[in-house]
């Protein structure tokens, strides 16, 4: 590698820009002062304890896990067959259908959130939980269609046809032959959709009610009323979660599969 000094200086500054704010959060989570300060005075784990003692945050955490998990699985159940149909058959108007399935990713999140709020909560008086679930399903679907779709496009469908000639039914061939060969794509799309759903703000912001508040929304509400290192501590815990997820992805698929 030949030296390229200008380039490395810019890159190092960019990486510093990306990482330093995170480091500041980590450091401030250990400060004793009840308002956030950097550099910190003293050293304490109290704010971490406080996270676990703040009911609204803990409750939201479990709700978010639940919502993201169910929504992503629902998106997989609906999305995989659709992606398969779009890749396998020359359906009329395939491009239009595909962009329709991808459209939740193009429409701003606040618009989807607001539309669902109007439709489900105001017009049909359905519980907020269902609205939140549907919203997260909508934003997860495009990830499944895109990622699973691209692994299906790389699949040689003659292996499925061979299975048919050997006496396999269509459904069985799909389950036994197609699915195992796109499992990396399914796993990658699941991870992406789950992380994205778990972190989503715009949709969740509109669909929140007593006892039904997603974690990012709770966190945002918390920041507006209390500016103390509890937020830093929770952020650090979530970052640790992110690192663990990244490690799992790296060990199973390689990080390249989700970038």
């Amino acid at each position: 590698m030949r030296k390229q000094r200008g380039l490395s200086i810019i890159s190092m500054l960019v990486f510093a820009f990306l990482i330093i704010p995170m480091i500041i959060i980590v450091v401030t989570s250990f400060g004793e002062n009840p308002s956030i300060q950097f550099p910190i005075q003293g050293f304490t784990f109290d704010w971490y304890l406080n996270v676990f003692e703040t009911n609204s945050l803990i409750q939201s955490f479990f709700l978010s896990i639940q919502i993201s998990m169910i929504a992503t699985i629902l998106a997989l159940l609906v999305g995989i067959p659709a992606a398969y149909a779009l890749a396998r058959y020359s359906v009329k108007g395939r491009d239009i259908l595909k962009s329709f399935f991808l459209s939740p990713a193009m429409i701003p999140g606040v618009v989807i959130g607001y539309a669902l709020f109007q439709f489900i909560v105001i017009q049909f008086q359905m519980p907020i939980f269902q609205g939140l679930l549907l919203g997260h399903f909508l934003i997860s679907l495009p990830y499944i269609i895109r990622v699973v779709g691209s692994s299906l496009e790389q699949l040689d469908f003659s292996i499925e046809e061979v299975a048919w000639t050997l006496g396999c039914t269509r459904v069985r061939a799909f389950v036994k032959i197609v699915l195992p060969n796109i499992q990396a794509g399914i796993f990658a799309s699941f991870m992406l959709a789950f992380i994205n759903s778990f972190n989503n703000i715009p949709v969740s912001q509109f669909l929140s009610g007593p006892g039904v508040t997603a974690l990012p929304t709770s966190l945002m509400n918390y920041i507006e009323y209390n500016y103390d290192p509890t937020v830093s501590a929770l952020s650090v815990l979530l970052m640790v979660g992110t690192v663990i997820l990244m490690y799992i992805i790296e060990k199973t698929l390689g990080l390249a599969s989700i970038s």
């Binding site: 959060i25 972190n199 690192v243 990244m246």
Partner: peptide
């Protein structure tokens, strides 16, 4: 990738601190 997978509330919060 790490910032990208981190919640945007956390990422904005970082800049409130700064």
């Amino acid at each position: 990738l790490f910032p990208l997978l981190t919640n945007s509330v956390i990422r904005s919060f970082a800049w409130i601190n700064i």
